[in-house]
Design a protein around this nucleic acid. Structure first.
Lengths: 337, 337
DNA sequence: ATGAAAGCGCTAACAG
DNA sequence: CTGTTAGCGCTTTCAT
C-alpha cells in the first residue's frame, strides 16, 4: 500500500540502487536520471522507511535525553532546547525521566532497553557522583551534562558554575552591595551545583575584601519556590542586615522575592536579588529577575553536536569537556551599577 | 559482537523460532526447552534488536507527543505525565514542539517524517481550530488533546473546562465571596480554554444570582506570569471592589498574586485567589495556591491507553471523547468555606 | 511443540 | 554513473 524504493525504481525505469542514490543525495547521479527518479518519487509520494534504513545502517537517528523531571523548570527548558537542536540536525529525541533522589534509577537508564534504539544518550544526573564514574563506561556515545561527575570517560558539556556565580556576586558588589545573602545552600556538600556556586560566591567576596558571614547563608536542600521563601525567611529572622541576595537558582529566587516582600523589604531598593538559570519565567516575574544565563541553549546545541560527532566518526577520541559562556541578564531585581 | 537470536539458538541447540517464542512469551513452549533457552539468553546477554523487530512487525513501540512548548509549565508537566504513562506500558516517547502561535507548524507535525517511525501521535494543538478538522484525518492512530477542536475524526481526551471553572467559581462563592474578578480572559474568543472557563464562570454567577460585571474581567491574550500581574493591575486600577480572583491558569494566578500584594491587598483576607491547572509549583507559592487540577495525570494515562488500543486493535472504531474528572486543591490562597 | 524458509525495506560492496 | 547481490535481525507463515 505504501510505496517502497522498489516501486519507485520500477516506475522510473531504473534500479533500486539509483533511487537510493537520489534519496541520499549521492553526488554522482546524472541530472536527467535524478529528475526522472524525483518525478517517480513525487508521483508515488514515496518517503523512506526509517526502520528499514536503521536496521541496515545500524543508525536510528534517534537520540535519548535523560533528565530528572520535566516538572523542574530548568530541565523542561533544557529539554526544549535539546529537542530544538536535535530537530535542526534531523534527529528525534526520546525523553526519559529518572526522577529526583533515585540514584539507582539514574544508573539504570544507562543500560535499559531504550539504549538499543537510540544512537546515543545525553544524560543529566542529579544523584550519581564521582564514585559512579565507572557506570559511565558504556559502549555507546554518551554526553554527560551537569556537575555531578567530572573527569569521567565520556564527553561532558556543562556551565562555568564557579565563574558565573563569582561574576553574579561581583555584579552585586559593583552595584554597591556588600552584605549579600545566599539562598539554597547545601551545607557540607562538596560536589554539585550548590557547592560550585557557593565557591564562586566566596571567591567574589574574597577578591573584594568582603568577609564571609555564615549568618547570611540560608540553607535548603530542595530548590522549589517555597524553599527559597523559607531559606530567605531564615536569614531575615536572624536579624542580620543585608542588601542583596544571591539565590542559587531562579526558582529559589522567586520564593525569596516573595519572602522579602512579605517582610516589607523593597526590591531592589532595600535588597537586590540575583538568580541563576536564566529561566524564561524570570523575565515575567515582578520585578523581573536579574539572573545568570549559564548558556543553556549553547549547552543543548553543543551536547547534540558532540553526540553527533561521536555517532558519525568512530567513538575513540579522548573525552572532551566543553564549558558554556554565561551571561548576566540585567533586569529590575538587581539593576547594574 | 552483540548476540542475536541466531547465536542464542545455536548455543541452546534449538531453532531461532523457538528462541523467538521464548522471548515473546509464546505459551506453547515445553518448560525444559524454555529453561534451556533462558540460560543461553542469560549467558550471552542477549536483548532483542528493536529495529529488526520493528521492521518485521510494522510496529515501533514508540509514540509521538506534540505539544506547543516545554517552557510552558502546563505542557512540561503534561509531557512528564505522558512519558511516565508510556513507560509503564513499555512505550518510548518522541517529544516534538510545535511552537506557540504557529498554526502551519502544528499542521505539519501531523505529516512530517517522524510519523513513519512512531506507532501513533498524541497531539495538543493551541492554534488549529474547527476549520482544520480535516487535517486530523490522518492514516495512523491519533489522539487529540485540548479544546481547540471537538467532533473531529479522532479520539479526543480532555478536561471538563466548563464544569471545572464553574465549580471553582462556586467554591469561591460558597466561601462567601461575591465580587469575583477574572484574570486572563480572551475577549470575543469562542473556542479554546479561555472561552470555556469563562463560560463556567458565568454559569456559576448566574446559578447563584450574582450579576456579571464586565469591570471585573481582566483580559490578556498571553498567559505568562507578567500578564497575570498586568491583567490584575488593570482590574485594580478600575477601582471596582472585589473580594476574589479566578485566574484562568496557575501562571496567571502567580502574577495576579504579585499584583495584589503590590497593591497592599492581603491574600486571602482581602482577596481570595483561585488558579487552574494544578501545577506542581502551585503548592510551593506563598501563599500556596488553591487551584483546579483538571485531571492532568488521568488525561496523560488515558491518552496513552487510547492510543495503545488503536495501535493494537484495528483502527476502525468510531472516535471517542473522554473527559477527565477534576479536583479542587484547597490551599491557602482560597480556603474552603 | 518446534523447525525451515521467506522477506520486511533498505544500504553497502562490488561489478560493470 | 548505474546495476546486482547480499543481508541487517527479526517475526511470520507453513510444515511437521
Amino acid at each position: 500500500m505504501v510505496a517502497t524504493l522498489h516501486d519507485v525504481a520500477l516506475l522510473a525505469g531504473v534500479s533500486i540502487k539509483t533511487v537510493s542514490n537520489v534519496v541520499n543525495d549521492y553526488p554522482h547521479v546524472r541530472p536527467s536520471t535524478r529528475t526522472k527518479v524525483e518525478q517517480a518519487i513525487a508521483e508515488l509520494g514515496y518517503t523512506p522507511n526509517p526502520t528499514a534504513r536503521s536496521l541496515r545502517s545500524g543508525r536510528t537517528n534517534v537520540i535519548g535525553l535523560a533528565v530528572p523531571d520535566l516538572a523542574l523548570a530548568y530541565f523542561a527548558e533544557l529539554t526544549a532546547a535539546v529537542i530544538a537542536a536535535a530537530e535542526a540536525s534531523g534527529l528525534s529525541v526520546v525523553v526519559e525521566q529518572t526522577g529526583t533522589g533515585d540514584r539507582a534509577r539514574e544508573i539504570s537508564v544507562l543500560t535499559n532497553a531504550r539504549r538499543k534504539m537510540t544512537d546515543g544518550l545525553i544524560f543529566s544526573p542529579l544523584e550519581m557522583g564521582p564514585e559512579d564514574v565507572d557506570h559511565l563506561d558504556v559502549g555507546y556515545p554518551l554526553v554527560l551534562l551537569g556537575e555531578r561527575i567530572f573527569d569521567g570517560p565520556t564527553d561532558h558539556v556543562t556551565m562555568r558554575n564557579v565563574e558565573a556565580a563569582r561574576a553574579a556576586t561581583e555584579y552585586l558588589i559593583h552595584s554597591g552591595r556588600t552584605r549579600i545573602a545566599v539562598v539554597g545552600a547545601h551545607e557540607d556538600e562538596v560536589i554539585g551545583s550548590s557547592a560550585l556556586r557557593m565557591q564562586g560566591y566566596r571567591e567574589a567576596l574574597a577578591a573584594n575584601g568582603i568577609p564571609f558571614d555564615p549568618a547570611l547563608i540560608g540553607p535548603s536542600i530542595e530548590w522549589h519556590r517555597a524553599n527559597g521563601a523559607h531559606s530567605m525567611a531564615d536569614v531575615i529572622a536572624r536579624g542580620v542586615p543585608f542588601d542583596a541576595v544571591f539565590a542559587l537558582n531562579d526558582t529559589l529566587a522567586f520564593g525569596a522575592m516573595r519572602a522579602l516582600q512579605e517582610a516589607g523589604l523593597r526590591i531592589p531598593d532595600d535588597v537586590a536579588v540575583m538568580g541563576f538559570d536564566g529561566l524564561d519565567e524570570a523575565q515575567y516575574s515582578i520585578p523581573s529577575l536579574t539572573t545568570v544565563d549559564p548558556g543553556r541553549d549553547w549547552i543543548a546545541r553543543t551536547a547534540v553536536d558532540t553526540l553527533r560527532e561521536r555517532v558519525r566518526i568512530d567513538n575513540t577520541q579522548p573525552p572532551t569537556l566543553k564549558l558554556a559562556e554565561f551571561t548576566i541578564l540585567e533586569r529590575e531585581s538587581a539593576p547594574p551599577a
